[in-house]
Design a binder for these strands. Structure first.
Lengths: 360, 360
DNA sequence: ATTGATTAATTGTCTATACAATTATATGAT
DNA sequence: ATCATATAATTGTATAGACAATTAATCAAT
């Protein structure tokens, strides 16, 4: 007998307790359909309204989910994730690069799902990321979108594990970590770099310098794409005109690299800037040194931060979509049990403006 | 009439909405007893069970509290403010203008106080702002930093009141609302505009056009500053070269204004762009039309979004500090009872670059 | 194949009614 | 004064029944 009508315990509550027991004991498993309200009324001898009250409470508590016409179903056991509607987003700095675009994509998608976004800036530092991670956990966020910091992979993993251990889904955005079984969304940096290098080659260039950071998977992939494009077109790789900085982006440092490069190697005819902000430096520098882009030197960037002031040919990255897709992954993890980790690689495409001259 | 029986909206939901409204508008204040279920049934003409459903939902949402034999009471929204450590930030769009800088200032200050920031984009639309406001309330934020939308003041006030009624502190950032007793942080737009207009006058200019939006207090103040600077220097105001758009910033529309202005009025020697993004348009346009800045025409902007590509002389606004100060106001409200509302006006200063030529 | 209409299952909304449980307050007894 | 008891107001629990809305699945038409 499920409900004891002589008990002082409310009958809806008895039913509720019984249902929880069944779920806990695995009689009703995740995603199972439990009996319909009518059936439960029959079985227990209660009125449908009473059954409904019990079920409604369990829905509120995050045990069950109702679907019209289909029935009532047991929800993913990682419990109260339903009531939590805040997602954390850790980016290096909301002011720089494409972070605003990414945040906006994520926020829009979150809003669609009636979730909110907590914004955290790590400045690419492990300590700051960890500080925020702890605060997010205290606020019991339902998920985390994380751009790994410039710290070693091991440290980033530590942060990620904190969440995963508590069954809080994590998605890496843009930057990835090798050999880590976690969802991520990125763009095809290797292919993109290969393509835009080939673009320069097709325009007649052979002496193509590249300047970027070796710190992040994204830019390391771009470097590989660049190298292989050269090799595939029988252009020797000249390590002197490959500048791969080991630290995060610091404007002044890159200014020095750029200045040194332009001064010492006037055989360079084209430059592949690891990202658009580096490309911008060259514009300023060209101005300063009386060099004309693209007449004297051609340049391409990567990202497509829409500057209206310089006509930079660059690789457009779908950043907004990256934010969106990251949030979609989080949402699907929250809503249902996902067994395997999923990786989304978005495609970039060249946006041709006027920073490259055809010389072939 | 509280419920419209012909509406497709469920009646319990209509009642629910009505009750929230009453609470928001202060008809039912904190700790007030609302009518009993029986009374509400009478008033609305609904069955008690239906009334009950509405009330139950509001109890779950944290609006109401039931006490047996006593009735149902409005909950004091500020009760848990010590334990709540999340602050809402509603900006038009995190991608545009200085929103990232503002967000970063606010976030850093929040982090110092072990608080977190929920980021919301309103797109300057009332409906979106309201959606986010409701979500923030559901997440029981401890405070709100709000950039009013482009909607009429009354609507923005409605959103603000929702928070204030629950004793949740609100700070307006950058844009203010006249005759509203609420904390705000802004910059001295009037003085700044006066100063930069005077700067142009001192450089020898008399025919100074201005282009901005008349939608926000900030830009309206700038327009006044511009006008008074002219008047004080005995320069007649020429309404033909004052373009005050009534809508939000839409790039293409401003392009048209700019193009028309440059084509029809070649007596103009200087331009005061209401903000830097407008100034940028002139750079693109100048390029297109073969006009040189500053040789053919001088231009100043407002904001100082640091573009490395064009040497724009502009009014630097301390946006990061604005975010910081806004958050500081929130924190002081959270920590202690503040009786009076406080207004902080930050000072801007001119950053001289190379977009203005001396002709006097 | 795609689109459109139909059907049936199930949850969603709503009414009208009844009695139970709780408890602040008033009343009465000591 | 203190304690016990009754009272009444209000929310809490429960029933039985009706119709609405949604939607997966099926069938029909193009």
């Amino acid at each position: 007998m499920i409900v004891d009508r002589s008990s002082p315990v409310p009958q809806y509550f008895q039913l509720q307790t019984w249902l929880i027991e069944q779920i806990d004991q695995g009689v009703f498993k995740t995603n199972d359909k439990i009996p319909t309200e009518e059936e439960l009324a029959q079985i227990t001898g209660l009125a449908r309204a009473t059954v409904r009250q019990a079920i409604q409470n369990l829905v509120n508590m995050g045990y069950l989910e109702r679907k019209r016409r289909l029935g009532t179903f047991v929800i993913n056991g990682s419990v109260h994730s339903e009531t939590r509607t805040i997602i954390g987003l850790i980016v290096p700095d909301i002011r720089s690069g494409y972070a605003p675009e990414l945040a906006r994509g994520a926020e829009d998608e979150a809003a669609k799902n009636k979730h909110s976004l907590i914004l955290c800036n790590s400045d690419d530092l492990y300590v700051k990321a960890e500080f925020h991670a702890n605060r997010l956990l205290e606020n019991s966020v339902a998920g985390l979108i994380f751009m790994p910091t410039a710290a070693p992979d091991e440290q980033n993993k530590k942060i990620i594990d904190k969440f995963l251990r508590r069954n809080i889904p994590v998605v890496l955005a843009d930057r990835t970590i090798p050999d880590l079984d976690v969802d991520y969304v990125t763009t095809n940096n290797y292919d993109g770099a290969y393509e835009i290098t080939k673009y320069l080659i097709d325009k007649g260039y052979k002496k193509i310098a590249i300047i970027l950071s070796a710190l992040f998977s994204t830019e390391r992939d771009r470097l590989e794409g660049y190298k292989n494009a050269l090799l595939d077109h029988n252009i020797p790789i000249d390590n002197d005109i490959i500048i791969a900085d080991s630290g995060p982006f610091i404007q002044n440092r890159y200014f020095k690299y750029a200045r040194a490069l332009l001064k010492t190697r006037n055989d360079i005819t084209a430059i592949f800037a690891g990202h658009d902000r580096i490309a911008l430096l060259f514009y300023s520098l060209a101005n300063e040194m009386g060099i004309k882009i693209p007449d004297d030197i051609s340049i391409v960037g990567y990202d497509d931060l829409h500057f209206t002031t310089v006509p930079l040919t660059t690789m457009h990255q779908p950043i907004y979509e990256m934010g969106q897709e990251s949030m979609k992954l989080i949402m699907s993890r929250i809503k249902s049990e996902v067994e395997y980790s999923r990786n989304i690689v978005l495609n970039s495409h060249i946006v041709e403006r006027e920073s490259v001259l055809k010389i072939a």
